[in-house]
């Protein structure tokens, strides 16, 4: 399935897609997007990279086994829900902080954001696990 064009183009395409997926993840709270859809985009990025250049470079680039990434996502998603216990409010209640980065400019941090990042990691990890495992099979 691997052609010269795809092999050359895949790393760039994949990088762009991952960046775009992070953009989609972060804008999700106010504009169309979010962790789930962002995760799907990143997963397709890795799938394309794998099809184009083989599974080994993808695994090297990921550093961790994708199922471990998914597990970590699950962990921080759970943590973001449990944090509400410290405030004595029900499980998964959203908590918000508005720290000032420089004077006059505020940003928003929240447990739903952490949760969404967790969702993103789970989706990326789980789908990439399946795709890479299948691509590897194919090559044997």
């Amino acid at each position: 399935m691997s052609t010269v064009i795809l092999r050359t183009f895949a790393p760039f395409l994949a990088s762009l897609m991952v960046i775009f997926s992070i953009f989609v993840l972060l804008r999700g709270h106010n504009e169309p997007g979010g962790g789930f859809i962002g995760g799907l985009i990143a997963a397709s990025a890795f799938a394309i990279y794998g099809i184009g250049c083989g599974v080994a470079p993808v695994r090297r680039a990921l550093l961790f086994h994708p199922i471990a990434i998914a597990g970590f996502g699950m962990f921080i998603a759970a943590l973001s829900g449990l944090l509400s216990a410290l405030q004595g409010v029900p499980l998964f209640t959203g908590l918000w902080w508005f720290p000032e980065i420089v004077s006059g400019v505020k940003t928003a941090l929240s447990t739903p954001l952490v949760f969404d990042i967790g969702v993103w990691l789970v989706v990326v990890g789980a789908i990439t696990t399946i795709a890479l495992a299948l691509e590897e099979e194919e090559r044997e």
């Binding site: 709270h29 979010g34 962790g35 954001l113 969404d116």
Partner: peptide
């Protein structure tokens, strides 16, 4: 604190 209702439901109301 979110304008995208779908996402707010997913990550907050029905987290």
């Amino acid at each position: 604190h979110g304008r995208n209702i779908v996402n707010v439901i997913l990550v907050d109301f029905r987290a």
